[in-house]
Write a protein that binds this DNA or RNA. Structure first.
Lengths: 134, 134
DNA sequence: ATGTATGCAAAACATTTGCACCTGG
DNA sequence: CCAGGTGCAAATGTTTTGCATACAT
């Protein structure tokens, strides 16, 4: 139930916000740019200004509903927040993105931060490369 | 001997390229944006167009002389390539960057990639947060 | 000489913002 | 009704490019 989600994070339930959240929840391509969202909405005959898409995604990020990534290639990439943190493998040729999670790496990160008196607020581990031919 | 470096990677030895490489080798702030480089050169009375700085840094990256990072905050950050790979801790308040290397994490990354049939060409592990007051 | 590099200004992007108008509660 | 949200166009900030000129070999 999305209306709840929005209210819970203190955002007024508006048409654009609902539509964008709905889109993010129903596409299979989990990682999208603001422009992807804008265009996908158009395909669904939902006309929402690109500026609004940016504003809404930024608000969603602040609210913890989505996560913003800074992969290579200029554009920010957004994905719906999940309960569990995870990292990414990005195929530089196809753009394919696979998520993974590794307990050992997570643990080491915390230990290393501690050793340096560093308080982690966020972290990103990205492997760039190519998936073997499928 | 920098002249060698440039020739070795197939770049003509020009004034701007030499000056930029020289700068990167002598500053203590290892991580700089193109604009940082541009301004630091001005301080040394070396006037090199910002466009040239971008072009040269991009060429250096292609040649493997420098590494380009996409940290949060829009601008690309460059650093002189080192023999050994390393990761980063970025202080979001002060901009302070500390490098680290962890054998265990590196090993796990390779294992995970293998499990997914993924060939790593590059990877980036960045911890964002704050260093404890110093 | 001559192919490549540079500087400058303009273009190209991604993202943000100002402001008049619309909308949700 | 009215604070807050949206659309559009214009502004911003970063990086790239076109083109005439300058430079390295």
């Amino acid at each position: 139930m999305e209306k709840q989600d929005l209210k819970q994070v203190g955002l007024k339930v508006t048409q654009p916000r609902m539509k964008i959240l709905e889109l993010l929840e129903t596409i299979d391509k989990r990682h999208v740019t603001a422009e992807d969202v804008y265009k996908m909405l158009l395909q669904r005959d939902e006309v929402i200004g690109l500026a609004t898409v940016y504003r809404v995604l930024t608000q969603f990020e602040a609210a913890g509903l989505v996560v913003r990534h800074h992969f290579e290639g200029g554009q920010s990439v957004f994905e719906l927040a999940q309960d569990e943190h995870h990292d990414h493998m990005v195929d530089l040729k196809t753009g394919k993105i696979v998520e993974f999670y590794d307990e050992i790496i997570e643990k080491r990160q915390k230990e290393i931060a501690k050793e340096h008196g560093f308080k982690i607020t966020d972290h990103a581990l990205i492997l760039y490369g190519r998936f073997e031919e499928e």
